[in-house]
Simulated assay, not measured.
Amino acid sequence: MTATTTQSHRGPSAHHRRRNSSNRAAATNRWSHGVTERSDAMDIERDIFRSGNAGEIAASLKRSSTHSRRRKGTPFQSAMSMLNFYVNRAGRNLPKERRDTLQRAKRQLRIAFGRKP
């Protein structure tokens, strides 16, 4: 076996890995933006997650998910998925009060769809 053949089995060189990791980091930073721009996710009411009322958030998500043609799962799955996506995207930057409101919205959403809270 030649050195070239052996090296190709080891994968890319360290230099190549570093270059790709910075590209990957840039892509990762914009991943959620790309999802919201290009995905086939349902259309939701603008600024609904800024509402301080959990019932209002749940009602809007239910309304959007039942009327939307741009969803893959059931209306409940789509609504809960959008709520979870928002919470996960905000991450540690989400203040406790907002996180608590969104957790209450999840319970309200389950009730609105006739699921166990």
Rank of each mutant, 00 (worst) to 15 (best):
S78T: 06
L83W: 01
H15F: 08
A59M: 06
W31Y: 14
S32V: 14
N20C: 13
L94W: 06
A58Y: 01
G91I: 10
H15L: 10
R70M: 07
T4L: 13
M1D: 04
Y86W: 04
R99T: 08
G73K: 15
R98Y: 02
T4R: 09
N29A: 15
S32I: 14
H33T: 10
S78I: 08
A14P: 10
P95T: 12
S68K: 00
A79M: 04
S21R: 09
G52M: 15
A59K: 14
S81Y: 10
N84L: 03
W31A: 14
M42P: 00
K62V: 02
S32N: 11
R98L: 14
H9E: 11
K96V: 15
T36W: 11
S68V: 09
A59D: 14
R46W: 11
K62D: 12
A25H: 04
R99W: 10
T28Q: 14
S65M: 03
D47C: 02
E97Y: 01
A26Q: 15
S51I: 07
V35F: 00
R92N: 12
P95C: 08
S68R: 06
T2G: 02
T6P: 01
E37L: 11
I44F: 00
V87I: 12
T28G: 02
A27Q: 13
T28C: 15
A90Q: 00
M1H: 13
Q77N: 09
